[in-house]
């Protein structure tokens, strides 16, 4: 009961700073799950991240998996709800006044100002996950290859994930 409340409240609070979506706050999710509450070790966190990437659906599934690992389906439910609820309510309320906000300078200022912060956060998330995986030389090559292919081609990301899984099985990364 207390555990479920902790899951809900932790992710409820994270939602308020997750500009750029769940991918942007992975370092904070790590801090909560591994350091603050010691719900899991660093390796488990990284592996749950990998599963979330491979599964269909929004990136917020990393939160579902953390909750599931901590306290089964109920943990998954409360963690996911905590992450999704605050901004869903805000979007619902805000949307009714959206037309009025179109010409408000603050809206444009927020939009322009938040974007670079989201960029910094998302890049930091990617870098920290890559570091926590402790890749060898071939692993680094796979990382760089993924970035290049994803930026330069329209290849579906699922193929890259498949490649990562297969190369991982060889144990060379």
């Amino acid at each position: 009961m207390i555990l479920l409340a902790e899951l809900f409240i932790s992710f409820f609070l994270v939602a308020f700073v997750s500009f750029g979506g769940a991918s942007a706050v992975i370092p904070e999710l790590f801090r909560i799950a591994v350091i603050e509450h010691a719900w899991m070790d660093a390796r488990t966190f990284t592996e749950l991240f990998a599963i979330a990437q491979a599964a269909p659906g929004p990136n917020v599934l990393i939160v579902t998996l953390i909750g599931q690992h901590v306290d089964g389906w109920q943990g998954a439910f409360w963690a996911t709800l905590g992450m999704c609820l605050p901004m869903s309510l805000l979007v619902g309320l805000l949307f009714k006044h959206w037309d009025k906000l179109q010409h408000w300078r603050g809206r444009a200022a927020i939009q322009l100002g938040v974007a670079p912060m989201a960029v910094g956060l998302v890049l930091a998330s990617g870098a920290l996950i890559a570091r926590s995986a402790e890749p060898g030389l071939l692993g680094l090559l796979l990382l760089v290859l993924t970035i290049a292919v994803n930026l330069k081609t329209k290849l579906h990301p699922l193929w890259l994930i498949l490649l990562g899984g297969v190369l991982g099985l060889t144990g060379l990364l």
Binding site: L123, A133, G164, G168
Partner: peptide
């Protein structure tokens, strides 16, 4: 399973970095 997830983690990190660069 662990080796496989290790490979997927690296690809996942790469995809997030690529997203960040595109947003940038």
């Amino acid at each position: 399973i662990q080796s496989m997830l290790h490979g997927i983690t690296l690809v996942g990190a790469g995809l997030i970095i690529a997203t960040g660069l595109r947003m940038g």
